[in-house]
């Protein structure tokens, strides 16, 4: 697991090209995240969020989980980002006012907080010796389906109820105060 012990493959071998694709995915993720947090307009921010989620889906694919990668694109890019775009259109923020980065925490203080957290977690991740255990199954889509309907069936049903209540609650809250108009 130590990076220095892994031999680097040649650039134009299969492993080398896979490594290049992985680095591109990481770059897409981080650049998308930076755009999402730093742009002046919310529409660009949502576009950055979409780019970031596509990169995260690529990273999931590298983690042997094509099913979760597909769900990431379907749910986040297909549903959450579109919902946020609709909210931006409905709640049209005034263009004259600067909606970018301002406020008391905008300067070095906010950056320092974020850098401290990210750096701390990164150092922890690099210095801990994570124990590796033998796999007991292959983590395929079939196994996910079996476990979702056996071991995790209670959580599965509860998440369905949470989603139903969330949709009903969203409708009730967003409808409130419309009668007078």
């Amino acid at each position: 697991m130590n990076p220095s012990t892994i031999a680097s493959p040649a650039l134009f071998s299969v492993d080398g090209l896979v490594g290049v694709v992985f680095l591109i995915m990481v770059a897409i993720t981080l650049i998308g995240g930076l755009i999402a947090c730093n742009s002046d307009r919310l529409v660009r921010s949502v576009a950055g969020l979409i780019v970031c989620f596509v990169g995260v889906a690529g990273i999931y694919y590298f983690l042997n989980s094509p099913f979760v990668a597909m769900m990431q694109i379907l749910i986040y890019v297909g549903a959450v980002a579109v919902t946020i775009s609709f909210a931006i259109m409905l709640a049209a923020p005034e263009e004259k006012k600067k909606i970018g980065i301002t406020g008391p925490l905008a300067g070095p203080l906010g950056f320092g907080t974020a850098a401290l957290l990210a750096g701390g977690f990164a150092v922890l991740a690099l210095q801990t010796d994570w124990p590796v255990q033998a796999k007991i199954n292959d983590g395929s889509v079939k196994q996910i389906g079996i476990q979702l309907l056996t071991d995790y069936s209670m959580v599965f049903e509860l998440v369905s109820i949470v989603l139903l209540i969330a949709i009903l609650g969203a409708l009730v809250i967003a409808r409130d105060g419309r009668e007078g108009q």
Binding site: L30, G33, I84, A91, T113, L117, A118, F121
Partner: peptide, 18 residues
């Protein structure tokens, strides 16, 4: 960790709810 840090930075610096 980097994505988490970017998110924290956004959440403390953004002034709009969205």
């Amino acid at each position: 960790a980097l994505l988490f840090g970017i998110g924290i930075y956004g959440i403390v610096t953004r002034r709009t709810l969205i």
